[in-house]
Amino acid sequence: MWDVLRAETLILRMGMRLLAVAAVMGVCSVHVMAVPKRVVSMNLCTDQLAMLMADEGQLVSVSHLASDPASSVMVTQAQRYAVNHGLAEEIFVMAPDMVFAGTYTSRASVAMLKRLGFRVEQFEPASSFEDIEKHILRMGELLGRPQRAKELIAEFHRRLAEARGGEALKRPLSALHYANSYTSGAGTLAAEVVDAAGLRNLGSELGLTGTSRLPLETIIISNPDIIAGERLAGEAPALAYETFQHPALKAILGGEPMTGVADKYWVCGGPFTAEAVAILNAARRKVVGQAHP
């Protein structure tokens, strides 16, 4: 009886030790692989961070969205890389030693690539300034460019500080109004941007979380000081955009255009997100009648 138990304990202990050894080896292998030579990114957000940080020749390909001026702030830089569409087959033939992907996009392709033995590093969408810093640090570690990561974070802080300026006690109400009458509620990057710009976010005040619907009716009746969203120029038409042409919206804006914050500044988090803060802060100053400092 005791022998059996001892034997089991032994086996368990050996198992544990093996696991520990494996873990150490794992750590080692991570360490050895730490500087990848052929990196492919298949998600707009990792595209931009990788382009900001990768060493010369280290990044091979970025997704097609990186060269879409509506979504990406780095269209010119993206021209230097091969384009992928997040398909496993495309990535496979590029033979990368590290793949960057988002946690929500191209899930089937990511699962396939993992099965094929590729090292896939997934990044959650950034939902706060803290996330942006974490992502930059992690990307820096993975690419073997920690110094560059620190520089970028410093740049982000500097740009944020510039963008903020001139906060008053009065915090005007701002409604974020996107296509299909969607808005950003509490816990989103956009909500933090609005907050940093010295504004109150209508979505958060109404108890909405994440990206959810905020009907035009509710915006009108809440009478916000600022209505902000993407001002779409030269985009292909869709019913989703009809809400921007609605007579009720035009009436409450009093003939002024909506405060245009391009999607590209906050669909992904990066140092460039500070630009969204700057735009909204300028709109706030206009509302409270504050001159530019």
Binding site: L216, E217, I220, I221, N223, H246, P247, A248, A251
Partner: peptide, 11 residues
């Protein structure tokens, strides 16, 4: 004004 817009232009 807001109620007017909601009623006349939306509902």
């Amino acid at each position: 004004r807001a109620a007017e817009l909601v009623m006349q232009e939306i509902r």
